[in-house]
Design a protein around this nucleic acid. Sequence first.
DNA 1: GACAACCTGACC
DNA 2: GGTCAGGTTGTC
Length: 269
Amino acid sequence: MPELPEVETIVGDLRRDILGRKITGVRYLTRSVWRKKPPRAVLLLGARVNQISRRGKHILIHLSNEYTLVFHLKMTGRLTYENSSDPRRKHTHLILNLDKGQLRFNDIRRFGYIDLVGVGKLENLDYLEALGPDAMEISKDEFIRLLKSKKRIIKSLLVDQSVLAGLGNIYTDEALHLARIHPRRVSARLSVSKLARLHDAILETLRKALAARGSSVDNYVDGRGAKGSFQEQHLVYGREGKPCRTCGRPIRRLTIGSRSTHYCPECQR
DNA sequence: GACAACCTGACC
DNA sequence: GGTCAGGTTGTC
C-alpha cells in the first residue's frame, strides 16, 4: 500500500525512465479507472513528459501540452515503466506507449484512479486542495501548532490526509513507536516536547523508508517493478506477537477508527 | 466521528 | 464460505 515513501520512490524512478519521453499511443483497458471519462486520445498523443511530481500520495505527470496526468494508487495500484515486449499482467488498466517503452497502470482492486487535468485546473482541483501540509515538508513549529489545535486520537489524526498529507497506516504506527507515544493519546493533550519528538520520528521514519525504497508488505513495487525492503526494519507494523525491538515485550494490535494499529504497550505511553 | 462501500486475493 | 487487508469518499 503506497504511502509517501513508496510514492516518492516511484516518482524518482519515473523521472529516470520517462522524463522527456513522447506518448505515441494509448490503450484504455478499463475505462472505469478514470476519475472522469477517459480523455480523447488526441489530448495525450504527441505530448512529452515534462516533469513528474508528488502531492501527498498522488503522482502528477506534467505533459508538454500543459495537461497533467494524476494517479492515485490507493491500496494495490502500480505505476511502472516496462518494455513494450514485457508480458502484460492481469489487472492492467492503462498502457501509454512511449517513443521508448511503456508506462502501465495496474491495480488489482481498482480502488486507485487516473485523472487528466487541463491547463490551469490543477490549482483548484478538489481532491488536491483538500490535502493538508506534506508530512515531509511541514516545519516543527507548524506541526506542533497543527496538532495542538486538534483534539483527536493521534492515530486517526495522522492518517487523515486533510490534516497531514503522506502518512498511511504503516508509517503512522512506525512513527508513533519511534516517538514512544501511545496511538490512543489525544493530539492536543500531548506536551510540546512529545510533539517535537513525534515530528522528528515522522521525518526519520520517512527518510529511512525512502532509503530502503519503501515497504513491500502487500504488493507494492517501485517504478521498475522491484520490491522495497523497509518491511524488514519495521518496529511494529505487521509484528503482532513478536518481541518489541526496544524492550522485548510482545507487540500488540488494536483497532482504532476501524484500522489495525500496532504498538508496544510498554514503550508507548 | 463512526462506518459502509468500493474491489480482489490470501488465508482460514 | 467467511474474514481480512486499508486509502479515500460518502453517508449518517
